[in-house]
Design a protein around this nucleic acid. Structure first.
Length: 272
DNA sequence: AGGAAAACCTGCGTGC
DNA sequence: TGCACGCAGGTTTTCC
């Protein structure tokens, strides 16, 4: 479900609900088998920790505390929301964190592809983050970076952009959109994308992500922010989910091609 | 070694 | 109405 803009909105929403300086009072685990087994003992050791901030890295939500970092990945259908004391939990609520001042947040995830883990303050030394590439909204992400990352890659450019070891945070929606807006067909081998096109690709990726963050992310089906609101960026999708509809530029039908097991929406006329 | 496919799950829409 | 099938904003594991 959630890509960078959605995760960013979840972090911002959670920050509104749980103020900086709140203390973790307790955890409740309703299910311990998510994508991976929850490190319950370790998570319990955060009881009493003081929250410094809630931030995003790639598609991860980082709860930064004075005892280290607890982090959450939403998988496809993960959701965080506030659970008021009077409310009862839902079928797919798996984990609850109670903070000071009676603030509770709950993690819900029907497909259970999400997961949790913890790290020291220096998260980049955690094995999981060692494998994670650079932030697409950072200065580091530029045409030179892409040129090096794409060099010798025989995989389709679409798959290369989805590879979190390169640029971290893009997912199926935003890669499809970015390739359409730069006129690059998704199945083109990464190493064959003309270097001349890379500055535009970088620019469009940043533009799309920023616009989507601003719009509250994309809600196709499941995504909701922590106050249960939908995103608005789906209205600006030009190809994603639009198979058979007419291309906004040339009016030929949008196609859907399967690449590495993922649907890839594209316009055969506008993209080469 | 790198790339593709399968696996991990539940729910929903479609077509018979 | 029911059931089988395919598909879903992701990532890891397995298999060529």
């Amino acid at each position: 479900m959630p890509e960078l803009p959605e995760v960013e909105n979840v972090c911002r929403g959670l920050s509104e609900i749980v103020p900086q300086g709140s203390t973790i009072q307790s955890f409740e685990f309703f299910r311990k088998d998510l994508r991976f087994k929850l490190p319950i003992k370790k998570l319990q050791s955060f009881k009493g920790a003081q929250l410094r901030s809630i931030e995003r890295r790639a598609k991860y939500i980082l709860f930064k505390t004075d005892r280290g970092v607890l982090f959450s990945h939403l998988g496809m259908t993960g959701q965080w929301r506030e659970l008021k004391k009077s409310e009862s939990r839902g079928k797919h609520d798996h984990l609850l964190i109670a903070f000071s001042k009676n603030i509770q947040i709950v993690y819900s995830d029907p497909r259970r592809f999400g997961f949790f883990d913890w790290a020291t303050d220096n998260i980049e030394s955690h094995p999981r983050f060692k494998e994670i590439g650079i932030e697409p909204l950072s200065e580091e992400f530029n045409a030179d970076f892409l040129e090096k990352f794409f060099a010798h890659k025989d995989s389709p450019v679409k798959s290369a952009l989805l590879d979190q070891k390169g640029v971290a945070g893009l997912g199926n929606i935003y890669v499809c959109e970015a390739l359409f807006r730069t006129g690059i067909r998704p199945q083109k081998k990464a190493r064959l994308v003309p270097a001349l096109k890379l500055p535009l690709l970088v620019k469009e990726i940043k533009k799309i992500l920023e616009a989507s963050i601003l719009a509250g992310g994309s809600t196709i089906k499941d995504y909701r922010n922590p106050v249960n609101g939908q995103g608005g960026y789906q209205d600006q999708h030009l190809v994603y989910g639009r198979e058979g509809q007419l291309c906004s530029i040339c009016h030929s039908p949008i196609k859907n091609l399967r690449l590495s097991g993922r649907s890839s929406f594209w316009c055969p006329t506008c993209q080469d």
